[in-house]
Simulated scan of single mutants.
Amino acid sequence: MSDTQNRHSTDVVIIGAGPVGLFAVFECGMLKMRTHVVDALDMLGGQCTALYPEKPIYDIPAHPSIDGADLIDRLAEQAAPFNPTYHLGQQVTTLTREGEGWLVGTDKGTVIEAKAVIIAAGVGAFGPNKPPLDGLEQYEGSGVFYMVKRRADFAGKRVVIAGGGDSAVDWANSLSEVAEKVMVVHRRPKFRAAPESVSRMDALIASGKIELVVPYQLSGLEGVGGKLTGVRVADLDDHEKVLDADVLLPFFGLAMNLGPIADWGLEMEKGHIAVDQRTLATSAPGIHAIGDIANYPGKLKLILCGFAEAAMAAHAIHPRVHPDVALHFEYSTSKGKPGA
């Protein structure tokens, strides 16, 4: 469903259309709460769609492996029976109290009146941390990429991957199946990725499908006419060598920018929104935060934890939306088919 007018009224506004926000639509729907969803991107999926639609995700229950894009498609299908209204390509700029509820305003002039708000904005506005290399810009989009949207684009290419986290390791493993050569550059032989993924990479290194370039870091780029031909790397003593390459994938994390969220008067902790671990409630009544943007003791930044937080927030919000309806917890198997 799309916008039909600039002003709307609903039960719950969900800020963020990533996997956790989409599952919050389902959880609210199961409790008979109507939802509107706002996202700055012009498509569903948040980081899953924008950054790694073809990256395999291994820790979603009942899915030994599922690509980011497939996960979003299934979550959208799961939410569909509850007829959420999506406002995409719009950034929430204002969040103001009105009576017992809230007014959510966007940069496109959309205003939504709601009894409660769920902030599922991931890391807020995001962009890649770029390596400080001379001439980097002339290769961006042709030889330097900060994300992989289609594995097929790298078939038969000589690929240099820089970084030591999950993205670097997971894409090294995945692209080794299609690329001519994959080289992983890291300043030390230890990686900050999931142990199972590191073990898989170690096996691929041992079999010669991945070349490990350590202890090195990026020092420069070589090419002609905007076409990348090599990546210069230097060791700890500044000894350089050139890796023949068609593509550089620097995975140094995301630059996080909360944007307007930082001005909404919510209690913050280390750049995240502080919440009650039991209800995901923020310091403002009726506003809850879930997913990566929420912080509480013992927080794990996993999609599956965000799914649980969506359910907890929806149950906590129910009395605000339906104050005269007693909520008796039921399993989905006893409630019946969603939307029926």
Rank of each mutant, 00 (worst) to 15 (best):
S207D: 15
E196I: 15
T10P: 01
A314C: 09
Q91I: 06
D263R: 11
P56K: 05
Q91Y: 08
F23L: 14
I112R: 07
S176M: 12
Y216W: 01
C48A: 11
A50R: 10
V148E: 01
S219R: 08
V25G: 04
G339S: 15
F307G: 03
V184Q: 08
L95Y: 02
G225K: 05
L212H: 05
G127K: 00
C305Y: 03
K108M: 12
S9K: 14
P285Y: 08
T106D: 08
V117R: 01
P189W: 14
Y58P: 13
A313Q: 08
P61C: 12
A234G: 00
M1R: 14
V92C: 13
S9M: 12
K227M: 15
I66Q: 06
V325P: 01
I205H: 06
V169F: 09
P132Y: 10
A194H: 15
V325G: 03
K270L: 10
L266F: 13
G89L: 03
V37M: 06
L136R: 08
V242H: 02
P195I: 06
D67S: 13
V148D: 00
E269P: 05
V178T: 14
G163A: 02
H186Q: 09
V144S: 04
K149S: 11
K335W: 07
A313Y: 02
R320T: 14
H63Y: 14
N6D: 14
M183I: 08
R150Q: 09
T106I: 05
E113H: 15
D166M: 10
F307W: 02
A340W: 14
Q217K: 08
F145S: 05
L95A: 00
G46V: 01
R74Q: 11
H8F: 08
T85Y: 11
R7F: 14
V104E: 11
L95F: 00
G163V: 04
V144Q: 04
V37N: 00
V111W: 09
T49H: 00
L327P: 02
A316Q: 03
W264Y: 06
A234Q: 09
D39H: 04
I273C: 08
H87W: 05
M33C: 06
I205L: 09
A316Y: 00
A311N: 04
